[in-house]
Write a protein that binds this DNA or RNA. Structure first.
Lengths: 216, 216
DNA sequence: TAATTTATGTTACAAAAATCACAATAAAAA
DNA sequence: TTTTTATTGTGATTTTTGTAACATAAATTA
């Protein structure tokens, strides 16, 4: 399934939970559309493609919808992640309560120099040498990369060897699945979401400037 | 111009700088394509659409390419941003050197309780009450939102009133440009990049689980 | 009970984005 | 000089994604 569709599903799911807390029992496609800034037709189409059905003139029953989406998103599974790189960004994520609230558990942080990591909390901070053993033993499949640019590729490969297949990468290197590369010769596939903070902000400046330049 | 195209342009630009530092003078479309995980044809098409031309059999001259892209991206402009919400994420960004390295300057942080903000550094941390004056005086156009979910919408509106038009939003609320809303009745347009960390990780779990479930 | 209203579900359509394929051409080799 | 090679530039094609529109059916009203 398409990345965009999966993202929308996650967002529908989050909204539904909030509607439920507010005491609602049903939603209409335009409720979800409005809240997410998409057309109601797209909401219905998404559900239709996933064989999720609602009720003619009655909208969708929130509980049913939540159950259906959870089934698709695999929310039943335990969602444990590791964070590799406990610098500014990594440590912030370890302290950020939002992930936990959404059922995502950070089980460990790794750093080249764990003794120098400022973060002091519940989550264990280990050395990079322990990474492979830990991940293999705990069977972790998803990891966050928040190391400096120069370390990113090496850490990526290390994580792959340890068995990670899903990556959220905050380093400015565009990590990618490269079939020709030797590290991918194990016939596996990997899922990588790259978030480049500079690029995101630069992107805003492009639009802001082009709007400002309009009148000059 | 399309968001995806602008993002690719930024990435081409970053890569070109690195190639240049390595001493290269020219690049071919497949160098850029390989590094970014896109097809060479797309690289050429991007340039072609932007009237950037290379040399038959000679690739593109890096310096020329950088100049062309900078002209389009408007890199000449000063890139100053504010950060609203100096909690875990906000404070991490204030300390993160990567942005500065890319020519993005954080000029101030704002928080409801600036006296409780742990960050101690060069960047001034001010109260939310100072936000409007500061932004208007300094003419800041781009801001990062890293406040808790419940505060996000109010902060968003406050920033709009102060004159911000580009937003990088880390709160889990999907901020969006809504023509019908009263706050947008000033005939302006706004640019919003939402980054929802939970959704990004959840997205990875979907693919990881569907891969794992394949054999069960 | 019949008419009307309101939302879904889906098909047809349109727009956008990426890929393909190859002509054009400059450089290098023979 | 001629031939070969390598790479760009782009029109045609395909793929993907979203929109529009409307037939369908449940619920409400008359």
């Amino acid at each position: 399934m398409n990345r965009e569709v999966v993202l929308r599903l996650s967002k529908y799911r989050r909204l539904l939970q909030k509607f439920k807390i507010l005491g609602l029992e049903r939603v209409f496609s335009n409720n979800l559309g409005d809240a997410l800034g998409v057309t109601p037709a797209l909401v219905r189409k998404d559900f239709s493609n996933l064989k999720i059905t609602g009720n003619k003139r009655g909208g969708y029953i929130i509980d049913e919808l939540i159950t259906s989406i959870d089934l698709i998103l695999g929310k039943h599974n335990l969602r444990e992640v590791v964070i590799v790189g406990c610098g500014k960004i990594g440590a912030a994520l370890m302290q950020y309560k939002g992930l936990e609230r959404d059922g995502i558990k950070i089980v460990a942080g790794f750093d080249l120099k764990p003794e120098k990591v400022f973060y002091k909390g519940e989550i264990p901070v280990l050395g990079l040498d322990d990474l492979e053993n830990f991940i293999k033993k705990k069977q972790i499949k998803v990891g966050v990369i928040s190391v400096p640019e120069l370390a990113a590729t090496a850490v990526f490969e290390k994580m792959i060897n340890a068995g990670i297949i899903g990556f959220l990468n905050f380093s400015p290197v565009e990590l990618k699945y490269n079939k020709d590369s030797q590290i991918f010769d194990n016939n596996n596939s990997y899922f990588i979401n790259n978030i480049n903070l500079s690029v995101e902000i630069e992107n805003l400046f492009y639009y802001v400037n082009s709007k400002t330049d309009e009148f000059s």
